[in-house]
Design a protein around this nucleic acid. Structure first.
Lengths: 130, 130
DNA sequence: CTTGACCTTCCTGTAACTGGAACCTCTATA
DNA sequence: TATAGAGGTTCCAGTTACAGGAAGGTCAAG
C-alpha cells in the first residue's frame, strides 16, 4: 500500500509518516519504483502511534511503548509505569492551566472592557499584587 | 544595571532577556564597554513580560499587550479581548487534557501492572475499542 | 502523448528559548 | 602588577514534532 492509503487508514498525515520513518519508528518496504510500501504490520504500528500520540505520549514514550508492544515477554508493569508517569504529568499541566484560568477569568471579569484607559488586566501585569 | 541584576529582579533568565532584545521586545542601553544597561523602565517592562508569559500569553500576545500598555489612550476593551481569547484557549486545552486524563486513568486502573504480558493499555493502543 | 495525481528527497521554518564555545572586561587580592 | 574568577559579549547549534514548499520522478487514464 502506498503512503496515502497508509495515511488515511492510520489517521496520520503522510508527512508525519515520513518523519516517523526518518527517526526510525517505522521501516516500510520499498517498491521497485522507490515508493514506500506498507503492509498490515506497518499499518498496525502506525495506528498504534496515532493512538499513543493522540493521548499525548511523547515520541520517546512511543518508542518505549512500541518496544514493549513488540516484546512478547514484556511485563505489563513496565507499560503501566510509563502510563502512570504520563498521567502525573497531565495532571500537573491541568493544575497549572487551572490556576491560569482562575487568574485570567478574574481579570477579565473585573475589566470593564470599555473605551477608558484604566484596565485592571494591564495593572495586574505590571507585577503581582503590590 | 547589568543583565544579571535585571534577571534577578525581573525573574527572567539572562538568556531570555537577551533573546527578548533580539526579537525587539526590550531595548536596553549600552554602556561604553558594550554591556547592556537596564534602567527602571526596562526592568518594569521585563517584569511585565515575566508576568504575562507566566500566565501563558504567547510572545505575540505579549508584543500586543506591551503596545497597549505603552499606549496611554488604549481602550481597555482591546486588552480584555486578548485576555478573553487567551482564556478560551486555556479552557480548550484543559478540556483536552481532562479527556486524556480520563482515558489514561481508566487504562492505568484496569492494568494489573504485574509481570504478566497481558496489558490492557497496550491493547487499547492497538486501536480504539474494536 | 499529455494531464493530473501521487510519489520522492531535501531544505527551511516554526516557538521560545537553552547550552556551549570563544573571547572580552572588571574587580579584588597576592 | 599579575592574575584569577565572576560576569559580560556574540554567534552557532539543538530542542519538539512536525508543516510547507521546491524540484523532479512515476503512474494510470483518456
Amino acid at each position: 500500500m502506498n503512503i496515502k492509503d497508509a495515511a488515511e487508514k492510520s489517521g496520520l498525515p503522510a508527512k508525519t509518516i515520513r518523519y516517523y520513518e526518518d527517526i526510525g519508528l517505522v521501516t516500510p518496504d520499498r517498491a521497485v519504483n522507490g515508493y514506500r510500501d506498507f503492509d498490515a504490520a506497518h499499518l498496525h504500528k502506525l495506528t498504534f502511534l496515532a493512538q499513543a500520540r493522540g493521548l499525548g505520549f511523547s515520541i520517546e514514550d512511543c518508542r518505549n511503548l512500541l518496544a514493549l508492544w513488540e516484546d512478547q515477554d514484556r511485563a505489563s508493569g513496565d507499560v503501566r509505569s510509563i502510563a502512570k508517569q504520563h498521567l502525573a504529568e497531565i495532571e500537573s499541566k491541568i493544575s497549572g492551566l487551572e490556576a491560569m484560568r482562575a487568574t485570567l477569568a478574574d481579570l477579565v471579569e473585573t475589566c470593564a472592557g470599555d473605551d477608558r484607559p484604566d484596565c485592571p488586566i494591564i495593572d495586574r501585569l505590571q507585577g503581582p499584587a503590590k
